[in-house]
Design a protein around this nucleic acid. Structure first.
Lengths: 198, 198
DNA sequence: ATGATACGATACGGTATCGTAGCGTTTAAT
DNA sequence: ATTAAACGCTACGATACCGTATCGTATCAT
């Protein structure tokens, strides 16, 4: 009895290949793809069903509502950027910003983000997601700045939050507002100017 | 005959109070208000009709399609900011950024802009509007920077476009991405750091 | 093998929205 | 006063979506 009971409490690795998990995965992949193309607005459950091949009824067996699915798909968008450790603040910052600069014109999330920003403006749930995504982007930068403080390379009074805005702001500005290209020269200019003023 | 013909060729000031122009104005005002509240997505012609009191059929007599009305309403959003002239570059830049900083949390356009940015990502017509709005925001800054070059206060080799991004980027970043408050201290910090590096 | 669970297909009901038709009424110019 | 243009009202047709119901089929553990 106990043995039987234990067998039905499967470990996660078992569940991955179960039928439910296959469906979940297929739907989420398609949902994310759809979000990247049209943003939150034009996202429909019917289209997910059409593209994924998973029946709409099955989708509603997994997610209670359209919004739940959108939120779930958006959550998979949080960038897992790794923090470099070159030994110097300038080296670390350059590594981070260069990677972001290269991702901005191509990565899927850069096409969805405006949509999330807009939705977050009036929807608390999306505001929460947006907040998590944002923290994900800023985290590596905050970490290398803190490390620089630890090494004495940066004053302990330095306002990390301001510096992050001074570094990321110009890049984001070019991607979504002025829509100018973000070349390496530009990134280096920004870094040089911001770090010079510390 | 000629006199009669001339009378029908009215001057614009006459037209302002005509019935058509009254309708146009009422509808556009309501449309803009609606856009400010819900963004481009939740904007519906039916709601404009309900709120404005103008019949939906009349609205469609003026604008061929919903999109045309949205675009027309968005176009009225272009900020008409005046360029200061304090004599020094720092004074001018401070005046401009302080005004923007105070508008960012309150002005109607700041609630609609994410919506336009998102739509512009996939719609050329909105990309054009967005471009005009953007140029409107950056124009005063570009002008005072050019003036500073003329006075010799700024090197002729200075990349104006980069400096604009370095100044506006952090403010926009805080408004729409990190969602942190934008206090005067922050604005002054940004200005100080950017101008110090010139 | 058998039963439980998940899935697929189709068809709905309900709602929102776009854009139009028809027709009577108001406005405003002559 | 007459008349043309603009407006309001109601009612549509068409479409797209959400979310559910029904029922038959496939999967999978035991």
């Amino acid at each position: 009895m106990v043995t039987t009971s234990n067998k039905s409490e499967r470990v996660p690795s078992d569940k991955v290949n179960s039928r439910v998990e296959r469906s979940r995965h297929t739907v989420l992949t398609t949902a994310f793809e759809l979000l990247s193309e049209g943003g939150v607005t034009s996202f429909t459950v019917d289209e997910v069903a059409r593209r994924s091949g998973v029946a709409k009824t099955t989708i509603y067996r997994h997610w209670p509502t359209r919004e739940a699915l959108v939120i779930d798909a958006c959550s998979r968008m949080i960038a897992e950027q790794e923090t470099p450790d070159t030994g110097s603040l300038e080296g670390d910052v350059t590594a981070i910003l260069m990677e972001i600069a290269h991702l901005l014109p191509t990565a899927n999330w850069s096409f969805v983000l405006p949509s999330i920003v807009d939705t977050a403006e009036r929807n608390p749930e999306f505001a929460e997601i947006h907040s998590r995504i944002q923290r994900g982007h800023a985290a590596p930068l905050r970490e290398v700045l803190q490390r620089a403080v630890g090494r004495g390379e940066l004053s302990a009074h330095a306002d990390v939050s301001t510096i992050v805005a001074a570094l990321l702001g110009p890049l984001f500005y070019r991607r979504w507002f002025s829509r100018e290209p973000i070349d390496d020269q530009f990134v280096k200019e920004i870094i040089k100017r911001v770090l010079a003023s510390l």
